[in-house]
């Protein structure tokens, strides 16, 4: 198999890349792999992955016209999904909810599992923030129940449970 970057050397490194939210095999030679590893902070950076997602869209005009790229945007910081794809970075902590759908796929592909199992702050969150957050979540949970989004229901319920008894859920398993 020949390296798909230089089309010259024998490919010895094989990895999966996400193109149009589908996993695709990429094959490269040692030389190109090292080169890529040196140029970016990660060997196959998240930016690469995101630009790979957009590769499927044929030209930039079509890309600009895609409504879904402008909408939704994060109400807290104003970031759109298009900004996110261009920069490969989210704008603020709230973005994780604003782009929950898009992130679900991406996280599934770049991470081991979508659920955090590690450390959590001992005093997370402050009581005042917790109350506000619980109210917010209860409203979201309500909507999710009505719209029959069961996966979301579970997530919201878990978070509410966690917020109501932070001392107990603190202990890492």
């Amino acid at each position: 198999m020949i390296c798909s970057f230089c089309n010259k050397n024998e490919a010895t490194i094989h990895f999966t890349e996400i193109i149009n939210s589908k996993m695709e095999e990429t094959h490269m030679c040692e030389e190109c792999a090292l080169k890529k590893g040196i140029e970016t902070s990660l060997p196959f950076s998240f930016g690469d992955i995101l630009s790979a997602i957009t590769k499927g869209i044929e030209n930039i005009n079509q890309f600009e016209n895609e409504d879904f790229l402008e909408n939704p945007e994060c109400l807290s910081c104003g970031l759109t999904i298009k900004d996110f794809i261009k920069q490969g970075r989210l704008g603020c902590p709230e973005c994780y909810e604003a782009f929950a759908d898009a992130l679900k796929d991406i996280i599934k592909n770049v991470q081991k599992s979508p659920n955090h199992t590690g450390k959590s702050p001992k005093i997370f969150p402050r009581p005042k923030d917790a109350k506000r957050r619980i109210a917010e979540l209860e409203k979201k949970l309500n909507d999710a129940v009505i719209e029959e989004r069961y996966e979301d229901c579970v997530a919201f319920r878990d978070e509410i449970k966690h917020l109501k008894q932070p001392a107990e859920s603190d202990q890492n398993v």
Binding site: F46, P93, Y96, Q111, H116, S120, E159, H162, S169
Partner: peptide, 25 residues
Amino acid sequence: LEKSLPYAFSSKYGYLTACPTNVGT
């Protein structure tokens, strides 16, 4: 540090970071 700083944290995704490749731990 966390005693005096309100960290961005979600029980689902863990510590929230600008890039999803760092989220969680």
